[in-house]
Simulated scan of single mutants.
Amino acid sequence: MNTTGASGVFAREYEALARAVEVGFAGGRVISVSFPPEVPDDAAEDHELLERIGAYLDGERDEFAGVAVGLTVPTDRRDVLEALRTVPYGEEVSVSRLTRLAALDADDPEDLELVTSALAENPVPLLLPDHRVQGGPHATPGGVREALRRVEGL
């Protein structure tokens, strides 16, 4: 099924997470990722991204770099989340390192607050991999975060 320009909600359960991954699309861009206990009744299960997520969870290296993401967050938070997307598969960074990657001052409490707020409110965890940040906060739930870290050897 070609769902490249899809809009809607797609979800599939994954044994590696002991829960589902739900992905919301608008105009072919991912606008949300969540981890419900099971697939919602109104979600379709057939989407290329769900196939990629399954392969990733089975150990296939994927940074999801080519996945179009539609962020509807303020520009300063978008800058932080785009910096987060540059953290490579299998590597982790501290909050202060992510702050510097976002061209902010890691010694400025306001900049650190901006980074932690962006992490906590990340609308597309997994694609914007907050599980690679040491010391969080994280939008990815704890059990899911630990599973993703295991997949990447962190």
Score class of each variant (00 low, 15 high):
residue 139 A to D: 09
residue 34 S to V: 01
residue 149 R to F: 11
residue 88 P to I: 02
residue 127 L to C: 10
residue 55 A to C: 02
residue 86 T to A: 12
residue 6 A to Y: 11
residue 116 T to H: 07
residue 101 L to E: 12
residue 89 Y to A: 13
residue 22 E to T: 10
residue 30 V to D: 05
residue 114 L to Y: 12
residue 56 Y to W: 00
residue 125 P to Q: 13
residue 145 R to S: 04
residue 138 H to P: 00
residue 37 P to A: 11
residue 24 G to D: 07
residue 111 D to G: 08
residue 67 V to H: 03
residue 145 R to V: 00
residue 109 P to E: 15
residue 4 T to P: 01
residue 72 T to F: 13
residue 38 E to K: 10
residue 42 D to M: 02
residue 17 L to S: 05
residue 45 E to F: 01
residue 50 L to A: 02
residue 154 L to S: 05
residue 76 D to R: 15
residue 141 P to V: 11
residue 35 F to H: 13
residue 31 I to A: 11
residue 81 L to K: 07
residue 15 E to G: 12
residue 17 L to D: 03
residue 130 D to C: 15
residue 133 V to A: 04
residue 63 E to M: 02
residue 151 V to R: 14
residue 97 R to G: 14
residue 41 D to T: 07
residue 3 T to E: 07
residue 84 L to N: 12
residue 120 A to D: 11
residue 150 R to I: 00
residue 90 G to M: 10
residue 103 A to C: 04
residue 149 R to H: 11
residue 123 P to R: 06
residue 72 T to V: 06
residue 106 A to K: 03
residue 151 V to Y: 03
residue 15 E to R: 14
residue 119 L to H: 05
residue 113 E to S: 14
residue 141 P to T: 14
residue 89 Y to Q: 11
residue 46 D to Q: 03
residue 23 V to H: 01
residue 89 Y to F: 13
residue 132 R to N: 08
residue 110 E to K: 15
residue 83 A to D: 06
residue 104 L to W: 06
residue 102 A to F: 14
residue 10 F to V: 05
residue 138 H to D: 09
residue 151 V to P: 02
residue 17 L to F: 00
residue 28 G to E: 07
residue 143 G to A: 10
residue 19 R to L: 00
residue 34 S to A: 09
residue 138 H to V: 08
residue 84 L to S: 06
residue 103 A to W: 03
residue 56 Y to L: 02
residue 10 F to D: 04
residue 26 A to Q: 14
residue 56 Y to G: 08
residue 98 L to K: 05
residue 100 R to M: 11
residue 23 V to P: 08
residue 139 A to P: 07
residue 109 P to D: 14
residue 154 L to Q: 03
residue 72 T to L: 10
residue 49 L to E: 04
residue 134 Q to T: 13
residue 41 D to Q: 10
residue 23 V to F: 00
residue 114 L to M: 10
residue 13 E to I: 01
residue 7 S to D: 06
residue 32 S to E: 15
residue 11 A to T: 06
residue 142 G to N: 06
residue 11 A to E: 05
residue 24 G to W: 05
residue 143 G to L: 13
residue 105 D to K: 05
residue 26 A to M: 05
residue 153 G to D: 08
residue 51 E to Q: 03
residue 81 L to R: 09
